[in-house]
Computed example of a mutant assay.
Amino acid sequence: MQALIVIGHHDPRSLTHAIAHSLAEGLASAGHAAELADLASEGFDPRFSLADHAVHRRLAAPPADVLLEQARIDRADALVLVYPIYWWSMPALLKGWVERVFSNGWAFDFDGQHTVKKLRGMKVHLVGIAGADTGTFERHGYAEAMRVQIEHGIFDYCGADVLSSTLLPDSEGPDAAQWLATARQLGRDLFLTARSQIA
C-alpha cells in the first residue's frame, strides 16, 4: 500500500522533516511505499486566490497545481499530514494547501443548500509536532481543539476518516530525537490499526 506524506514545514533540516522521513522508513520496513510531498521545497503556493474562489463557486476548473495535488491524494491509500503546531493549529503553508486542494467539486459538493461528502473512504493520519510539553496541551484542551478544528472541521466535512491523531510534544527539549523512533513505529503500523494518541 502507499501513503502520501505531506510535510508542512519550510526547513528541510527540521525535526518535522526528520519525523516525516522516519515515518516513510517505517512504512518501507513494513513493505509499503511512501510519497513525500515537501510543500515548501516544491514551491506550492498556499494563498487562496481569486482563481481558487472561482473554483469554489464552480465557475472555473482547478488550477494545474491543485489538480496535481488531488491526483497525488487519489493514488494514495492513506494521507499523512506531518506538521509543527503553530499558534495551536497548522502552519499557513499546510492550511493553505488544505484550503486550495480540498476544493468544492473534488472534496465535497456544495450547491448553496446541501453538502455531499466526496472523500468517503479516504484514510487520514495526523502527526503534529509541538514545542510545549504534554501537560500544557492537556491543561488547555488541545486534543479536543485538534479534533474539532482539523478532524471534524476539515476531514469529517469531506467524509474522510481520521484513523490517528498523534501529538509529539516537547519538540524543542533535549529528548526530541526520541520521536524519530516513534515515527518509524507509526509508519510500520500505519496500515494495521486505528488509534488516537498523545505520545
Rank of each mutant, 00 (worst) to 15 (best):
M1Q: 12
V6M: 00
V6Q: 00
I7Y: 01
I7C: 01
H10E: 11
D11F: 11
L15H: 07
T16H: 03
A20R: 04
L23T: 03
G26D: 03
L27V: 13
S29T: 05
S29I: 07
A33R: 14
A33V: 06
A33Y: 04
A33C: 07
A34Q: 01
L36Q: 03
A37G: 12
D38C: 15
L39S: 04
L39C: 04
A40T: 12
F44N: 03
D45M: 00
P46M: 06
F48Q: 01
F48Y: 15
F48V: 01
S49W: 10
D52H: 05
H53G: 02
A54W: 11
H56T: 06
H56G: 11
R58P: 15
A60Y: 04
A60S: 13
P62T: 09
D65V: 02
L67G: 12
L67V: 10
L68S: 09
Q70F: 00
A71T: 11
I73V: 05
I73K: 01
R75N: 06
A78E: 10
L81D: 15
L81V: 06
W87N: 07
W88K: 12
M90D: 03
M90R: 04
P91T: 07
A92Q: 05
L93G: 09
L94T: 13
K95P: 02
F102A: 00
S103N: 05
G105V: 05
W106H: 03
W106F: 04
A107G: 08
A107S: 09
A107H: 06
D111Q: 02
Q113K: 10
T115E: 03
T115P: 03
T115M: 02
V116M: 13
V116F: 10
K117T: 07
K117P: 14
K118Y: 00
L119F: 02
R120H: 01
R120K: 15
G121F: 01
H125E: 14
A130C: 15
A130Y: 04
G131N: 08
G131M: 13
T134P: 08
G135F: 08
G135Y: 10
G135S: 09
F137I: 13
H140D: 10
G141Q: 12
E144R: 15
A145E: 13
V148Y: 08
I150P: 15
H152D: 12
I154D: 09
F155E: 13
Y157F: 07
Y157P: 11
G159L: 00
G159C: 00
A160C: 03
D161R: 03
D161Q: 09
V162F: 03
V162M: 01
L168H: 10
D170Y: 08
D170I: 08
E172L: 13
E172Q: 14
Q178A: 11
W179C: 11
W179L: 14
L180N: 10
T182D: 15
A183C: 12
A183Y: 02
Q185S: 15
G187F: 05
R188Q: 08
L190I: 13
L190T: 02
L192R: 10
L192Y: 09
L192I: 10
T193K: 15
T193Q: 12
A194P: 08
R195D: 10
S196N: 15
I198E: 12
I198N: 11
A199Y: 12
A199S: 08
